[in-house]
Amino acid sequence: MNNNHLGNIKPALEAVNLTKRYEDGVLALDHVSFSIAPGELFALLGGNGAGKTTTINLFLGFLEPTEGEAIINGIVCHKEPLEAKKQIAFVSENVQLYSNFTAIQNLDFFAKLGGKKDYTKGDYRDVLLRVGLSADVHNKRLSGFSKGMRQKCGIAIAILKDAPVILLDEPTSGLDPKAGRDFIELIKSLRTENKAILMSTHDIFRAKEIADVVAIMDSGQIIMQQTAEEISGKNLEQIYMQYMAGGVFVSEVIGAANA
């Protein structure tokens, strides 16, 4: 499958034949290739165990590929993990921060870890307001925060890092519809800042709504990858739901999606 939809545009994030076989022999990723341009949102869809999180972990340098390369702005992640991570902001499925710290203290710590040492408390307040956390909670300990509030703090940390690439690992999973909607709006705003965004998700509706490119993963392979224009008007939801429900052969999925 030709996964290069960028033409001559230099990708901000690139997977080249990315393969990962774990020590127990499980092949989690099997020659996966894709590219994401600056300002582009790439949604990686798939069920549990499809290989989405492994892909993200390879870009974060938490794993070394068995074969192939994860590249961020020309930096091969497993060769120069620290350099690569300077280019990445990451929001996980379940953002867990220090519960003894206030929202501002958490932001301060993670911003400094991200190499940003000149932010003021005013900057932290501004970004918290931007992600939708009202001023009355800025100095409250995280122990009292709901999951939606913590996810907002997570995206605030990603905004503060101001990295060219953002990795989102199922960021809306478990959020109520309102919180999920707010979160998607935030992500949309980041795309306008020319960030390359890789988002893994189960949620095809949100993926279709905001993604520039959607890829479906199964058993460590990308079985379908299409741009927003290609998907437009197709009954992707039905195909994906069939696929997610199981029993649908890869070829059928691809065929139906391309129909």
């Binding site: 974060l60 300077k86 902001a89 993670f110 870890l113 990795l167």
Partner: peptide
């Protein structure tokens, strides 16, 4: 367990 390690090491932290 708290998940803070993963977030911390998403940064260029030796």
């Amino acid at each position: 367990e708290r998940g803070t390690l993963r977030l911390a090491f998403a940064n260029a932290l030796p």
